[in-house]
Design a protein around this nucleic acid. Structure first.
Lengths: 128, 128
DNA sequence: TTTATATACCTTGACAGGCGATGTATCTTG
DNA sequence: CAAGATACATCGCCTGTCAAGGTATATAAA
């Protein structure tokens, strides 16, 4: 690792508790991207990697599994792009129900985040 | 629900995405309690409920499963209390390795939290 | 030409943590 | 005596993530 480069949170490798930390947030993160613009799986994953400085990369099985669940409950819809060159792309668009679900997810995340932060606060620790 | 009472995050019921949000944080939360003082399962769960105003309650199967894992990897040790009355209690004490693991977990949690918050930030949302 | 790399999607089986359900035992309160 | 609180434990299920493998097209290097 080049000096000065931060250690990535390697989702899925031995030193990572992180895939459990991500659990339940994957769909929210995807919806967040689709709030900004409709897009397709491969690009969304690249954008997430770029936005986090390479610290977060969704695995393909996780990514497509999440898209599948989101479409099944009507939070997104998909359609094939009309690319005349290169690999085909399946585009996703968020639905009104998806926007609502995102708002709800964000609220639940913020509540959970507050609770966890409260429970691991350092005041009063016993160092015997 | 009485007016003015906040809706609890009901871990495990139908409207709750929350048990997935908790995944991977259970052990950290238990270690956080044991940093403050050694204690036993039932009490720890009550303290967690009190500290979160009833918003978070670990299920017993979750609680004891987590203690079991923590002990298996040497992050806590357990011993039977010497109660002469009432139900027996299994007490837990955090080990030096457990303190180290907690510090690491907290760092990973904070990193994950930052990443998630960044990815769901609202700037630039597209409301077409 | 062949090979490798990037783009782009999909599926299968295994794994692990959380949960509902159930069981045990003791003590207190009505 | 029945009910509820205290206190611990276990079983099997469910679900999201992952490793591994597969398909196909385009471009760059050998």
């Amino acid at each position: 690792m080049p000096p000065g480069e931060a250690a990535a949170v390697e989702w899925g490798d031995s030193m990572s508790i992180a895939s459990d930390l991500m659990r339940g947030n994957t769909e929210m993160i995807l919806l967040a991207r689709l709030m900004k613009k409709e897009s397709y799986g491969y690009e969304i994953n690249k954008v997430i990697q770029a936005a986090t400085g390479g610290q977060l990369e969704l695995k393909e099985a996780t990514l497509y599994g999440a898209f599948c669940r989101l479409e099944a409950v009507g939070h997104i819809v998909s359609y094939w792009g009309d690319e005349t060159t290169g690999a085909r792309r399946r585009y996703y668009r968020i639905t009104p129900a998806g926007r609502q679900a995102f708002a709800q997810s964000r609220a639940e995340w913020e509540q959970a985040r507050r609770l966890i932060d409260k429970l691991i606060a350092q005041e009063g620790e016993n160092h015997d």
